[in-house]
Nucleic acid binder design. Structure first.
Length: 227
DNA sequence: TGCCAGGCCGGGT
DNA sequence: ACCCGGCATGGC
């Protein structure tokens, strides 16, 4: 029985050798990354791309540009990403917070540590643990591990974590068994999403060609999910 | 056609 | 402290 740290290392190497370094997050600037993190909540990235394109065309992929939009225009622009009413509010709350804390400059937050940044972001209505961690890791380049539905599903199906695990239990598991390294955290999560999209969707085991297949201890049991 | 997607919040037990 | 409905569009 190998140690968890060894298993994680081997699983990462299997994904890396299969897919190559993922160069995540898709997004050119920290602001764009943060906006994408909000828009992709429970939403496929292909829909988010349409919303991002609309925002870019409006010059609203920067703080001042998005501020300039009224709420209706913002809703119209992000409509393809779904939940547009809620997400418009979330983006406006994010703008308010950025204005109060960094003068609208995400980069100016880099002075702060991971804990301080997480707490600040979590105080924003509409930003929960995953969105906060995504922004801290991918926009601010600070080492915090991002847990998402694929992380939960893949590692529960592999019986490495319990299906009942909470966000913070899973996060602690990864952070406790991996070296604290920003680039590793970024690429590990990216690999998980790549594997998840292709091999670990909700009702399809479809593990035949999965790079993590060899790490399965037994047949995938779909009914064990929903924890 | 129905189910799913890189969550989160608020109100009810 | 959980549990659950609501939120909304686009793809397969």
């Amino acid at each position: 029985m190998a140690k968890n740290s060894e298993i994680l290392k081997l699983m990462y190497e299997a994904m890396l050798s299969r897919f190559g370094h993922q160069r995540w997050w898709p997004g050119d600037t920290p602001f764009e990354v943060a906006v994408g993190a909000v828009l992709t909540q429970n939403t496929s990235w292909s829909n988010v791309e349409k919303a991002i394109a609309n925002l870019r065309a409006l010059g609203a992929l920067e703080y001042e540009g998005m501020r300039y939009l009224d709420r209706d225009a913002l809703c119209a622009a992000i409509r393809p990403a779904g939940y547009f009413n809620q997400k418009a509010n979330k983006l406006l709350h994010l703008l308010d917070w950025l204005g109060e804390n960094g003068g609208g400059k995400i980069e100016s937050l880099s002075e702060q540590g991971v804990q301080s940044l997480r707490e600040g972001l979590l105080s924003i209505n509409g930003i929960g643990p995953e969105t906060a961690d995504s922004i801290v890791l991918y926009a601010l380049n600070k080492p915090t591990f991002v847990v998402d539905a694929y992380t939960h599903r893949i590692f529960a199906r592999h019986e490495i974590i319990s299906p009942e695990s909470t966000y913070y239990e899973i996060k602690d598991f990864f952070e406790g068994n991996l070296p604290t390294d920003v680039d590793l955290f970024k690429d590990f999560h990216a690999q998980i999403v790549t594997v998840g999209k292709r091999f670990c969707r909700k009702r399809e085991p479809a593990c035949d060609d999965c790079p993590l297949k060899e790490f399965l201890s037994g047949p995938v049991k779909l009914q064990e999910e929903r924890g």
